[in-house]
Simulated assay, not measured.
Amino acid sequence: MIDISDMLIFWAVVMARFFIPFSIPKYPLPGIIASLLLDAVDQTIFQVFTNLPLEGYQGYDKALDIYYLAITYLSTMRNWSNFFAFEISRFLFYYRLVGVALFELTEIRALLLIFPNTFEYFFIFYEAVRVKWNPGLLTKEKLVLTAALIWIVVKLPHEYWIHIAKMDTTDWIIANPPNALVLVGWAAIMIGIVYWLLRDLPPMRPGFSIAADHATFVFDKSVALNMKDNYTSKRFFDDFIHHELIEKIVLISLLSIIFAQILPEVRANDIQIAVGVSVLIVINTELSQWLARRGTQWKSILREFIIMSIVNLTLILLFDFLIVRYAGSIDLLNTLFFTLLLTLNITLYDRYRRVHIWSQASLIGSTESKTGIKTKRN
């Protein structure tokens, strides 16, 4: 019989992992560090304070990892003022997401080494810089070098350690306490690298801020001046609606594939899962794009989340009803939980992508007014 206190601890941890990432868009650095630490210690908490079997938690753990990683990426749309840094972070995020999706489909652990989670530490670096400096001062060369060093020096050893060697750091230190000195030395090297990267930045500004502000993107002047045909506002908006549609399809597809593969107690073949995921992708994408093309804007994140949740939960109930007729089944409660995570990510994407678009649009308008360049009319 499961002890009530064990379940209280279990759900307290799950809810903490669910709600703490909400702080990342507004308080990026403490939010991501809190999410990272909780991800690192959650199973230790269960082992020490409960007698729960942890096999059933693995699916939740993976899904919650991807969930907070997606919120972290979406917060860069809302906050980051260095456009080149944003482009690097977007590549790193989707590169990792592709790797996780391939791993879930094939179970080849080496894929997690080939597609390391460099994005998370790059995000931490940028936000740590923002606390005391203007991140717009980070040059392209410095940003590329930072991403490369994190990839090679930090993440490759880390991914090898946990996914290939399958070593647990806590057990490794308990077995031989002097091993902790290796971690201290590695941390010292990391601090030295960060100091070297920041050595030529101007003096730190007084005070610090952990709260993020909505960003106005920093472009190279040449990029702003040489944008093809100097978009009109309508062309600019239409072009980004097109790119937004493509990215949204990619994002929903990858999240849906990952969540579908790690759902516990699913008896459905690949074709059944593919059909269900495809329907979810098409309806979610078309709904938001249909509203966007008609100039309909969500007046609040909560309203969009409620509407999208109703749509997605209805789709899941329908899928559950139909799949039984084809000798398949899903765990409805678990599926609804995973769908809730997906819907939250979709909702934040819709909101913060708009911030991203209009930040760039206002920058182009500002550039034109300063340089006297007129936009061509069709």
Rank of each mutant, 00 (worst) to 15 (best):
H243D: 14
H243G: 15
E244P: 08
E244G: 15
K248L: 10
I249W: 02
I249F: 05
I249D: 06
V250R: 06
I252A: 09
S253E: 09
S253C: 14
S253I: 11
L255V: 01
S256D: 10
S256N: 11
I257P: 06
I258R: 11
I258A: 04
I258Q: 06
A260F: 13
A260H: 06
I262W: 03
I262C: 02
P264R: 06
P264Y: 04
E265Q: 10
R267H: 15
A268M: 09
A268V: 03
N269A: 04
D270H: 12
D270A: 13
D270P: 09
I271R: 01
I271P: 06
I271D: 12
Q272V: 09
Q272K: 02
A274F: 05
G276L: 00
G276E: 00
V277Y: 03
V277W: 02
L280S: 13
V282K: 00
I283W: 01
I283Y: 02
N284P: 02
T285I: 02
E286P: 11
E286S: 15
E286N: 15
S288E: 13
S288T: 10
Q289M: 14
W290F: 15
L291H: 02
A292C: 09
A292G: 03
R293F: 07
R294D: 00
R294Y: 03
G295S: 00
Q297W: 09
W298I: 04
W298F: 14
W298R: 03
K299M: 11
K299R: 11
S300E: 07
S300Y: 08
I301F: 12
L302A: 15
L302P: 07
F305M: 10
I306D: 07
I306F: 08
I307E: 08
I307L: 12
I307V: 12
S309L: 05
S309W: 10
I310A: 12
V311A: 12
V311R: 11
N312V: 04
N312L: 07
T314R: 00
T314P: 06
T314C: 15
L315V: 06
L315R: 00
L315W: 01
I316L: 15
I316P: 00
I316C: 01
L317T: 09
L318Y: 10
L318C: 12
L318R: 04
F319H: 08
F319N: 08
F319P: 02
D320S: 12
D320P: 00
F321S: 14
L322D: 04
I323V: 07
R325H: 14
R325K: 15
